[in-house]
Design a binder for these strands. Structure first.
Lengths: 198, 198
DNA sequence: CCCTTGACTAGAATTATATTCCAGATTATA
DNA sequence: TATAATCTGGAATATAATTCTAGTCAAGGG
């Protein structure tokens, strides 16, 4: 192998992410990515068949990291309240720790370039959704969470996180993150709890 | 004037939005826009100095329409509960009625091309934010809504709308929209009400 | 009525950038 | 070591944005 197999590939993905965060997706040229990754044009195109596919690869790398971590944290929690808080905390912490990935993942979510890796992304999402769904089903059955359609559930829990994260990433959030976790968790729990609650 | 002043301009904006929705921003070429709007290359560049600026104009047109409508609905409501429901209903209805604008506005929100019209956008947003802020301040003062930082408030109300809208627009929402309005309103109210509530 | 001006339109020329191509280098393996 | 597979470099090509030049058209002043 040259150095390590996959080494170049990772270098290029890293460089691409850096460029995308610094200058935006449309603005970064392949030449920028070559320069930053110290790989030649030919090399980049050997590993990724287009700018779009490279962007997809960046996306995939990020989403995988995010999802596995979230599921890890969630599975540790057996009480509904704590599980929901854990999700919210995980999401916001992840954003704080990985601002570049976050920007890319959450803002590029609907880019058409993702079509290139659609199957891979769908596979990831499907498994992720299934496991999240199971967790909720368990708690609805047990009676600790109100019976609400899953899409609404997701909207009520993740929506506020996303919106706060958006503000946070653009420097427009005033509330500290730990307080945001508390407040958003409280809101989510008030909305989802079976019994009356503060 | 040729025909009507500003007529060409509007034609071009309309054509651009159509192209963007059908093929995505990156994928549509200026040639596509010329073809669809029946304007020549030169004409398009006479009215808009770049593809980016054209996209900005599209964005601006949409956001203005959205914001004025929302404020209109909100100002009609004097009870806190009803105001919050009105906001949520307005948002989701707007998305349902204007899927193309919605996709463009909410997905392109962070595109760097917006920098071109930054001042105009900031001016709109600033006024919008001020008026929203006043509405909430009134109700917090009156004691009907818990005292929560504004960014969290926005996150808790608009976040779920956005997330549901995203699912809706990509055809992944299962819950009907009128039910979504009810559920999300209930959730928001549970989270924000000063007194215990269902 | 003619001339000038400014707003607008057309399409060709230019430039920037993504993509393709191919020759050569490096590594793994037989 | 021979050979195939993988990888790299950079030039050549293609595509699409942008600029440029030469107009057309309507309105108003002299």
């Amino acid at each position: 192998m040259h150095a390590q197999s996959g080494f170049r590939q990772k270098e290029i993905i890293k460089a691409a992410l850096d460029c995308f965060t610094e200058m935006g997706f449309n603005e970064t040229t392949m030449a920028d990515i070559c320069l930053r990754s110290k790989a030649s044009n030919g090399s980049v195109y050997h590993h990724f068949k287009s700018k779009e596919q490279l962007a997809s690869a960046v996306y995939l790398e990020g989403i995988r990291e995010y999802q596995t971590g979230l599921l890890g944290d969630l599975d540790k929690e057996h009480y509904a309240t704590r599980g929901i808080t854990a999700m919210i905390r995980y999401h916001l912490n992840w954003v704080a720790r990985n601002p570049e990935w976050s920007r890319f993942l959450f803002q590029r979510r609907h880019e058409s370039f993702l079509a290139v890796t659609e199957e891979a992304i769908n596979a990831l999402n499907k498994d992720f959704a299934r496991r999240i769904e199971n967790w909720f089903a368990r708690h609805i059955k047990a009676g600790s969470i109100r019976k609400i359609p899953l899409d609404i559930m997701i909207a009520v829990i993740l929506g506020p996180c996303q919106e706060y994260a958006r503000l946070y990433l653009s420097g427009k959030a005033h509330t500290r993150m730990d307080e945001a976790v508390r407040e958003i968790s409280r809101a989510a729990w008030a909305a989802l709890a079976r019994k009356r609650n503060i």
